[in-house]
Amino acid sequence: MIQNVGGMDRVLRILIGLVLLGLAATGTVGWWGWLGLVPLATGLLGWCPPYQLLGFNTCSLKK
């Protein structure tokens, strides 16, 4: 799996994921807050399937 998410994109995904999960866990938002798992996972893994399908790459490392 080649990383295609890097830098600020990765940081923002992790932060947004954590905020959404925190809001869902406290009951502030509905069930959709659990969708924060998606940006959190893609941020932690550094790989995003739609980016690969569309040919995007925000990772500065070229392998």
Rank of each mutant, 00 (worst) to 15 (best):
A24Q: 01
A25M: 11
W31K: 10
G36T: 05
G43A: 01
A25Q: 08
L61F: 10
T58P: 03
G22R: 11
S60A: 14
I16L: 15
Q52L: 13
G43T: 00
G55Q: 05
I2S: 08
T42K: 02
N4E: 13
G46N: 00
V29T: 05
L12H: 06
I2F: 08
I14F: 09
C48L: 00
L37W: 12
T58H: 14
S60H: 06
I16Q: 01
F56A: 07
R13C: 02
L21C: 02
N57V: 00
L35D: 06
L61V: 09
R10M: 09
K63L: 09
L40I: 03
V29P: 02
L53D: 09
T28A: 15
A25W: 15
L12M: 15
L23I: 06
L45Q: 05
L23D: 02
Q52M: 10
L40T: 06
L45F: 12
I14L: 09
G55E: 09
K62G: 00
V5Y: 15
V19K: 07
G22V: 08
G17C: 04
L44F: 06
W47L: 02
C48I: 00
W34H: 00
G30I: 08
K62V: 04
L23T: 05
L20K: 04
L12T: 04
N57A: 06
L44V: 13
A41E: 07
G17Q: 09
L37I: 13
T58E: 12
A24W: 03
Q52G: 13
N57S: 13
Q3S: 14
A24H: 01
Y51S: 01
G46I: 00
L12Q: 07
I2Q: 11
N57C: 15
M8T: 09
L20D: 05
F56M: 12
G33L: 11
Q52C: 05
L54C: 01
G7S: 04
C59N: 15
C48P: 01
A24C: 03
R13V: 00
I14D: 07
Q3W: 09
G27R: 10
V38L: 15
F56Y: 15
P50N: 08
L21I: 11
L20G: 08
L23R: 04
V11K: 14
P39L: 12
N4C: 13
I14C: 08
L44N: 05
I16W: 14
T42D: 05
L20H: 11
L61N: 07
L23N: 07
T42P: 01
